[in-house]
């Protein structure tokens, strides 16, 4: 399957604005971005999730399937300052693994926003 890089009708502007607001308030912030997606994953490349140090988040990188796991990773990234690439695929329901029930696959880049 070819990566879907669908024209984004609208950018998630408010996600970046919220990230900037948190930084101004002196909070640590990490940003997660869908950098490729395959199959029926619900959010195209460019979809973003911003996370603050108190675990508050805005935006999305899936239909709610992997946000919990991505927030946990984002908290680590904002501590270490080292960016990370995460991949999520089809859920193995028996193993209760974090994944996408839709059968799609996404690659998510997580980075700290810092000085």
């Amino acid at each position: 399957m070819a990566p879907s890089d669908v024209n984004q009708g609208s950018q998630d502007d408010d996600v970046l604005q919220e990230a900037a607001n948190w930084l101004k308030a002196g909070k640590k912030v990490a940003l997660a971005t869908v950098v490729s997606s395959w199959g029926s994953s619900p959010r195209p490349p460019g979809s973003q999730l911003a996370v603050s140090e108190d675990s508050t988040f805005v935006g999305s990188v899936s239909g709610g399937c992997i946000e919990g796991a991505v927030v946990t990773e984002a908290l680590e990234v904002m501590e270490s300052g080292e960016s990370k690439v995460l991949e999520y695929g089809v859920t193995d329901e028996l193993a209760w693994e974090v994944g996408l029930a839709c059968g799609g696959k996404v690659k998510v880049f997580v980075e700290a926003v810092q000085e």
């Binding site: 970046l16 900037a20 930084l23 980075e111 926003v113 810092q114 000085e115």
Partner: peptide, 9 residues
Amino acid sequence: MKTSMLDQI
């Protein structure tokens, strides 16, 4: 990402 880059965007 640098904060300055986010502000620039």
